[in-house]
Design a protein around this nucleic acid. Structure first.
Lengths: 275, 275
DNA sequence: TGCTGTGAAACAGTTCACAGCG
DNA sequence: CGCTGTGAACTGTTTCACAGCA
């Protein structure tokens, strides 16, 4: 499903690789910092360092946007800030709603980096009637009943879901039905959406699990994987950088609460299948 | 830097692709749900749907772990839960510290999915003396002065940074010096760490920017990109799913507070470089 | 001369499609 | 016969290395 993507030679015009799009915000952040320090130009090398990538990658990324640099000199900071902002669609502002005002929802509502990038929190929505009217981040929480009206009245197209996992799919469907076409999902569930709707997920527990995986390797804890682990060390075990995060707010860790069906510390397998 | 990676033929043994590692937690989540419903076996097709990936990918992913399925039948749920947990290192438990107990730090501290996956919050640390001793998620916040002692005494190797961007690098250095080798960074800054230390970042504002990019395409808002946008629509514009999130807690949106140096709504460029 | 922009090569990840086991 | 496991083809991304412009 969702095949296609015209796959044009990608030489300028539309067709910026997804990997590049994901890095543009990083460049923008670094450029904004330079801009505030009134630095007029940067080389690909300097900017790459500031953004935490390598310079060849950065130059290739920028080449998809057009030729915005000057050979022998570098890139004009202000100009690039503008171009990237425009490419990302940050020259217009985006009203967003946050659904699920628990700990996480509140944290998001208070997040400063929001407004500074063209995003405006249009409303905070929660299903708990007791929350209704309570001010969070200087804004009264509204009840879920108002969801459709809020979306419509404010022309909201981006929704943030920070509800417990159990409520996420339902909230998602209401958002989509009301006109939202981009969703940032913090609930640890797979959301199913119709074509044309983007979902990005952020799952804290997934991030930690990935770290644990690498951590385990380093220590060479387990029985096997000694030489292998050592060989691996030479390079590449560090600076992963990628991400994914979530964190349902209140409770409902996806399904089932307490201890997972984890087996004993070792070989103590369910005694079913072979090895 | 960090080149290498032995690049063994990857046929079993060590050498699970990073992309596969990133999906294991997803499979684990889906399997745990099945396990709780006492489902004994699943086919790659069913599990793939539950995890939101396609079945070929899932089968290939599992093939890196070994041959844990039964042809004509599928996979034993309990057995797979165990194998994946072990592979991810979740059969041991990992003490973690959270540094920066603002809105976000508190949300993380309260996050249920933490404990249910072998992660144990060993301590909450904040630089604000006024926070010291205050209970958050049933645990007293400790002052930054105690950081090194806490890490050492608890054998912590995973740290979560949820401080404002300005403090992140310094906190990171102290964590690393004290023995932490894996860091989950919520502050919108690039952390520099020595080799052997893993950093994963989670940046909310980046996620939103990526959504905005796609959102902009859909609407075909801007002048150009009309036909292109339409062509694009056919497929692929949906269900991105990848991620990255952050959200500094308190304030300090990375650098500088208020309005970004965004230019006028259109062509109103800094009047520097050419087009 | 110094740094960008970009083909071409190398690598990583995904999808196809089917052999082969239970 | 059904479903796994996997080679092989393909698509996407990164890195290299250098031509060419300011």
């Amino acid at each position: 499903m969702a095949t296609g993507r015209t796959h044009r030679p990608a030489t300028r015009s539309r067709g910026i690789p997804e990997a590049t799009v994901a890095r543009l915000p990083l460049y923008l952040r670094a450029l904004t910092a330079l801009s505030e320090r009134s630095v007029p130009t940067v080389s690909s090398e300097e900017l790459a360092t500031a953004a935490g990538v390598n310079s060849a990658k950065l130059r290739k990324d920028f080449s998809y946007l057009g030729s915005y640099g000057t050979r022998g000199v570098g890139y004009d900071v202000e100009y690039l800030v503008y171009q990237i902002s425009r490419e990302l669609g940050l020259t217009q502002d985006w009203p967003v709603v946050i659904v699920g005002i628990g700990n996480l929802g509140a944290a998001l509502a208070n997040y400063g980096g929001f407004a500074s990038r063209g995003f405006r929190v249009a409303a905070l929505i929660d299903a708990d009637p007791a929350m209704a009217g309570k001010p969070v981040a200087g804004m009264p929480v509204q009840h879920t009943d108002e969801l459709e009206k809020i979306i419509t009245d404010n022309g909201v197209s981006i929704g943030v879901i920070a509800t417990p996992a159990g409520a996420a799919q339902q909230v998602c469907e209401r958002l989509v039905a009301a006109g939202v076409t981009s969703i940032l999902n913090f609930a640890p569930t797979v959301l199913s959406v119709p074509d044309g709707v983007d979902v990005r997920k952020v799952d804290l527990s997934i991030e930690l699990q990935i770290l644990a995986f690498h951590e385990q390797r380093k220590a060479g804890e387990g029985a096997a994987a000694e030489a292998a682990s050592a060989a691996e060390r030479g390079g590449a075990v560090d600076a992963v950088d990628a991400v994914d995060m979530s964190a349902t707010d209140a409770d409902a860790p996806e399904t089932g609460g307490g201890a997972v069906n984890r087996k004993g510390p070792d070989g103590d397998v369910p005694a079913v299948m072979p090895a």
